[in-house]
Measured scan of single mutants.
Amino acid sequence: YKIYPYDSLIVTNSISVKLPKDVDRTRLERHLSPEEFQEVFGMSIEEFDRLALWKRNDLKKKALLF
């Protein structure tokens, strides 16, 4: 996945969300650098992957990456 800054990946309720063209809309968190991922989620990507799907989705919603 290509890395993008968190600010360019957050999704708000506005209709005209302009995400970069090559971003996987269903896995926005994968486009964060490991350092920024840790900062946003408070855990590593590996720890995040071990969580239940509902928990990952809940965290993504709170981080505006859903």
Rank of each mutant, 00 (worst) to 15 (best):
P34R: 13
I10F: 04
P20D: 06
L28H: 01
D49N: 10
I3Q: 08
R56S: 04
A52H: 11
I10D: 02
R56V: 04
E29A: 01
P20N: 05
Y4W: 06
G42F: 09
K62H: 08
E47I: 10
Y6I: 03
S44C: 12
G42M: 11
L19P: 07
N13P: 11
D22N: 07
L64G: 11
L28T: 03
K62W: 06
Y4N: 01
K21Q: 14
R27W: 03
Y6V: 03
V40S: 03
V23W: 02
P5S: 08
G42P: 00
D24T: 04
A63V: 10
V11D: 06
F48D: 00
H31E: 01
I10K: 15
N57W: 07
S14I: 11
F66Y: 15
F41Q: 00
S8M: 15
K55Q: 13
S14M: 12
V11T: 12
P34S: 12
W54L: 08
L19E: 05
D24A: 04
D22Y: 05
V11R: 08
G42L: 11
D7K: 15
F66N: 06
I45D: 04
V11I: 14
I15C: 15
V23I: 09
L28I: 06
W54A: 11
T12I: 13
S8I: 13
P5W: 03
L32Y: 00
Q38G: 12
K55E: 14
L9K: 00
K62V: 09
S16Y: 10
V23C: 04
K55V: 13
I3F: 07
N57E: 09
K2Y: 07
L59F: 05
V17R: 12
E47M: 11
L19Q: 06
W54T: 11
L51S: 04
D24H: 06
L32P: 00
L28A: 03
Y6A: 02
R50N: 11
S33W: 03
F48P: 00
A63P: 00
F66I: 08
K2S: 11
L32Q: 00
K62Y: 06
L51N: 04
R25A: 13
E47D: 11
L32E: 00
L65D: 01
E46H: 11
V23N: 01
V40K: 06
S16G: 13
A52K: 09
I3E: 07
F41M: 06
K21S: 14
S8P: 00
K18W: 08
L9S: 00
L65W: 02
E35Y: 11
T26R: 11
P34I: 14
G42D: 10
E39A: 13
I45G: 06
N57Y: 07
N57I: 15
I3K: 07
F66C: 11
V17D: 15
V17Q: 15
E35L: 11
L28G: 01
F41V: 02
D22K: 03
R50L: 14
V11K: 06
Q38P: 03
F37L: 02
R56K: 10
S8N: 08
D49S: 08
Y4I: 06
A52G: 09
K18M: 12
L51G: 02
S16L: 13
N13Q: 10
I15R: 12
E35N: 10
R50H: 10
L59W: 03
I10Y: 04
K60H: 01
V11P: 06
R30P: 01
L65T: 00
Y1I: 14
S16M: 12
V40T: 06
T12H: 13
L65C: 02
L53P: 10
F66T: 07
Y4R: 01
Y4G: 01
L51W: 02
D58K: 12
E36L: 03
D7W: 15
V11G: 08
P34Q: 14
I45S: 07
L19N: 05
K55N: 08
E36M: 05
Y1N: 09
L59R: 03
K18N: 15
Y4V: 04
S16F: 13
F37K: 00
A52I: 08
G42R: 13
F66R: 04
A52M: 08
L28W: 03
K55I: 13
L32T: 00
G42I: 05
L9T: 00
L32K: 00
V17Y: 03
Q38K: 12
Y6K: 03
Y1V: 14
K61Q: 09
N57F: 08
I10R: 12
W54Q: 10
S33P: 03
N13C: 14
G42T: 08
D7C: 15
N57P: 00
I15P: 14
S14W: 06
L51I: 06
D22S: 05
S33V: 04
M43G: 01
D24G: 03
R30G: 03
I45E: 05
S14E: 15
V40L: 06
V17E: 15
K2R: 08
L19Y: 15
L32S: 00
S8T: 13
F41H: 00
Y1C: 10
F48L: 03
V23D: 01
D7P: 09
K18E: 15
V11A: 08
R56W: 02
T26M: 13
L19K: 04
R27K: 12
Y6S: 01
T12L: 14
E36Y: 02
E39F: 14
K55L: 12
V17N: 15
Y4E: 02
L64Y: 11
I45V: 09
R56N: 01
K61W: 07
K2N: 12
Y6W: 04
K55R: 13
F66S: 08
E35V: 13
F37M: 07
V40Q: 06
A52F: 07
R56T: 03
L32C: 01
L28P: 02
V23Y: 02
T26Q: 13
S16W: 08
R25T: 10
R27H: 15
F48G: 00
W54F: 09
F41G: 00
L65I: 05
D7G: 12
E39N: 13
K2Q: 12
E46N: 12
Q38A: 12
K60N: 01
N13G: 13
W54C: 11
L53N: 08
S33N: 07
D49V: 05
D58N: 11
K2P: 15
F37H: 03
E47C: 09
K62N: 09
V40Y: 06
H31D: 01
E29I: 01
L53W: 10
D7N: 15
V17S: 15
A52T: 13
T12K: 10
D58Q: 13
L9Q: 00
L51K: 05
D22T: 05
I45N: 07
H31P: 01
S44V: 13
A63Y: 08
T26V: 07
V11C: 10
D58S: 12
N13Y: 05
G42C: 10
K61A: 08
E47S: 10
Y4P: 02
N57D: 11
L28D: 00
F37Q: 02
E36G: 05
K61Y: 08
L59N: 02
R50Y: 08
H31M: 02
D24L: 05
P20R: 04
Y4C: 03
V17C: 15
D24P: 02
F37Y: 02
P5R: 05
R30M: 07
T12R: 11
V23E: 02
